[in-house]
Amino acid sequence: MDLQLRDRRVSVFGPDVGIVAACRRVLLAEGAVLAESSSGDSYPEADVVIAVGGVRPGSDLLEISDPDELYAAWDDVTNAVDAYRAALPRMLDQKWGRFIWVGSAQAKSVDAEADELAAMASLGMLGLHKVITGEVGSNAITANAVLRGGIATDEDVANAVTFLCSEGAAYLSGITITVDGGAGSGIF
């Protein structure tokens, strides 16, 4: 299937280098190009922004004693917001854009080994995506999330991300696709 991503400018960033690299690889194979920022310290005006959340396996909110650890996880959200907003003017101008967050499936279904900080950040992004959908969705700009769980590979995640970037996903916004090999137990 032609995903109609040829020459789309994509920006992929985040602390998880494996997923960032996999997303770039799959998107470039579909003909997309990497967006570059005009200055080194700002986010580029991309057509597609993919923000990948950090992972902190086994993080336990009750074991943390320093609130700075919570703020550090929240920085994943505010960095995504900064990147999204940097791209927004171009998206509004051309009436096309894709925002995608890659986060933790534990945002929706808790397990014993939960990465609690990642779940918390992802829930913030899901709320933000509903706001974006309501505010700018009529400009053919969508905001969706891929939540990884189980033993999903970087490639599994990148495939779902790339689908959400495609024209076939134009009517999906404010949704999540959980990529977990069926590990989660929640129905909704």
Binding site: D60, L61, L62, V77, Q106, A107, V110, A112, A114, E116, A119, M120, A121, L123, G124, L126, G127, L128, K130, V131, T133, G134, E135
Partner: peptide
């Protein structure tokens, strides 16, 4: 989305999630 409540829309879900996670621990 019919009221301009950006901040609670973004932060209330993480708070709910945090309580769900603490419930499992406790």
């Amino acid at each position: 989305t019919n009221l301009p409540h950006l901040l609670p829309n973004v932060v209330r879900a993480p708070v709910a999630g945090m309580h769900r996670l603490m419930a499992a621990r406790l």
